[in-house]
């Protein structure tokens, strides 16, 4: 009898296959991250509402650590601690956490594939090119995509990408942008010489669309009726 891979494992691999084709190296990081890498390094100011205690799981320790709320901080941590020199392309898949109540569309445990491409001339149109290529690769060539300006403190310019659902409505799917100069500095990279395109999609919602899953909690449900269908 054959067993089964988890749908998020499958979805992750399909996505990574796309990114690997463009030379993105897969790296991983710790799920418990320092407050500095999770927030400060990403230009999220100390007085920003995103720091509010209720959105983040804080670890019981003296040194202010959190369950990472995204893989972006881990990515920076990796770049800085390995003193990576540009140009480079990285993707960081991994588990992230938000301290929130769960329902059909909210989970305190979710997954992201952060990505970053640092180069002299990489630009906003490349960023849209990479991401729409990925979305079409995993969800099909017919999917309609649009881009909207949006604020994330770690990018400038920043954007959100929407896709059109079967009912004709736009659904926000991911945030991206060109790295903010402060963030580049925090990685040890000179913002006057290098550009960086970066993004951080939660992939659960993509997998839900791809596999027709209506309840995000199924992923961690441990229910074999769910798991054995994949």
């Amino acid at each position: 009898m054959k067993g089964n891979l988890h749908p998020l494992t499958k979805f992750m691999r399909l996505s990574l296959k796309y990114f690997k084709k463009y030379g993105f190296e897969i790296v991983e990081g710790d799920e418990i991250e320092s407050e500095w890498y999770n927030f400060d390094a990403l230009n999220v100011p100390a007085d920003h509402p995103a720091r509010d205690v209720q959105d983040t799981f804080w670890i019981d320790s003296q040194d202010k650590r959190v369950l990472r709320t995204h893989t972006t901080g881990s990515e920076l941590h990796y770049i800085k601690s390995s003193a990576l020199k540009p140009p480079f392309r990285l993707v960081m898949p991994g588990r992230c956490y938000r301290n929130e109540r769960t329902d059909m569309t909210h989970e305190h445990t979710f997954y992201q594939i952060d990505g970053i491409a640092v180069d002299k001339n990489i630009n906003l149109t490349n960023l849209v090119g990479i991401l729409s290529g990925w979305i079409k690769d995993v969800l099909g060539n017919n999917v309609k995509i649009r881009v909207r300006p949006h604020l994330f403190p770690f990018v400038e310019p920043g954007m959100e990408i929407d896709i059109m659902l079967a009912d004709g409505k736009w659904r926000e799917m991911l945030g991206a942008g060109m790295a903010h100069p402060v963030v580049l500095k925090n990685m040890g990279i000179d913002p006057e010489k290098w550009n960086a395109a970066m993004w951080g999609p939660g992939i659960d919602r993509f997998a839900m669309l791809k596999y027709n899953i209506s309840d995000i909690r199924r992923f961690q449900s441990q229910d074999l009726r769910f798991l054995k269908q994949f």
Binding site: F19, Y22, N126, V147, P149
Partner: peptide, 22 residues
């Protein structure tokens, strides 16, 4: 970019490259 239109800027592919193994 905002006043010009993000979607009007268009999109460009990046080059394919070999990636390192993890």
């Amino acid at each position: 970019a905002r006043i010009y239109g993000y979607n009007k800027l268009g999109l460009k592919n990046i080059s394919s490259e070999k990636s390192k193994v993890n």
